[in-house]
């Protein structure tokens, strides 16, 4: 059965994030003008990376277990695609999760609101590591980003041929400016381990207010050609993600794709969290 492999230190899996850093990311999410999509997305990505690290921490003495490889590709600056981790890991395409945890650019202290257990909210200060800085510049060279992802994961799948296959998230707010990304996306999905093909999920974020379309199963449900293109570029959700999303209350069928259109920040966070949740972590 595909997408069933146990994730262990000997058989890790891989998360690759492709982040649109084009000029249009300087606009805010729908209904939010105080912060740009780039800034908000940087917070979301940094939080996700921190959560991925924390999943691999078991006890005080052991450090971080290398269950995952993680990479972040940005695309936009100089109309190119590039490794987007900052700080000590700058320039690295893919790193072990222990390297990630031990090498943030900086660790900030941030106040968050948590429930106080008596029906109210209270502030708590958390350590918030930063690996990824916001940027909004130039066009949307998505094809180049998919080609870079292919090169990275081709090596990785050869190295870990029995692992749970890599999961790629492409987060974008606009149409590609360097051609049709569908062939590159399909080529990427052809890469595989013995447990299944590489999973490519697309998240479209928008500054215009509109109903998000979440995990569609048919492209005729989508409003325009661009949405249908992203639908075709997205993998069908594997069974464990179908289960996780159903637990969250979504109506998901076995044909549902890993694709959200017109997503607000909450839906982006939710999909990234669920999509990186391991089924079978040893």
């Amino acid at each position: 059965m595909p997408y069933d492999a146990e994730i262990s230190r000997n058989n890790p899996t891989c998360f690759l994030l492709m982040i649109d850093q084009s000029g249009s990311m300087s606009d805010g999410f729908a209904g939010q003008t105080d912060r740009s999509k780039a800034q908000q997305l940087a917070d979301i990505i940094n939080r996700l990376l921190a959560d991925i690290c924390l999943r691999c921490v078991k006890n005080p003495s052991e450090g971080v277990r290398d269950y995952f490889y993680v990479g972040v590709i940005g695309y936009g600056r100089n109309d190119s695609a590039y490794p987007a981790l900052a700080g000590p890991l700058a320039g690295q395409q893919l790193v072990r999760v222990s390297e990630l945890a031990n090498n943030p650019l900086r660790v900030e202290q941030r106040a968050i609101q948590v429930e106080d257990g008596a029906g109210g909210l209270m502030q708590r200060t958390v350590r918030f590591p930063i690996w990824f800085e916001p940027l909004a510049d130039n066009g949307t060279p998505m094809c180049q980003a998919f080609q870079m992802a292919y090169d990275i994961l081709q090596d990785w799948t050869k190295r870990y041929p029995r692992s749970f296959p890599p999961v790629v998230f492409n987060i974008t707010d606009g149409q590609p400016t360097d051609g049709d990304p569908l062939p590159d996306s399909q080529r990427l999905q052809q890469l595989a381990t013995s447990d299944g093909n590489v999973l490519v999920f697309n998240i479209h974020v928008s500054e215009t207010a509109g109903q998000p379309l979440l995990y569609p199963e048919r492209e005729d449900l989508l409003p325009d050609d661009y949405a249908r293109l992203l639908f075709r570029m997205s993998s069908v959700l594997p069974p464990h993600l179908v289960t996780f999303l159903r637990e969250e209350g979504f109506t998901i069928t076995p044909q549902s794709r890993g694709f959200v259109f017109n997503a607000n920040a909450v839906e982006v966070i939710r999909f990234l969290n669920i999509g990186t949740r391991p089924k079978n972590l040893r």
Binding site: A50, C53, L54, V57, P60, A101, P104, V126, R127, P129
Partner: peptide, 17 residues
Amino acid sequence: SLDLNNLPWYAIEKAER
């Protein structure tokens, strides 16, 4: 019972959770 002195950010955050 946890000794969290001088531990990196991830150990402290994980312990908080």
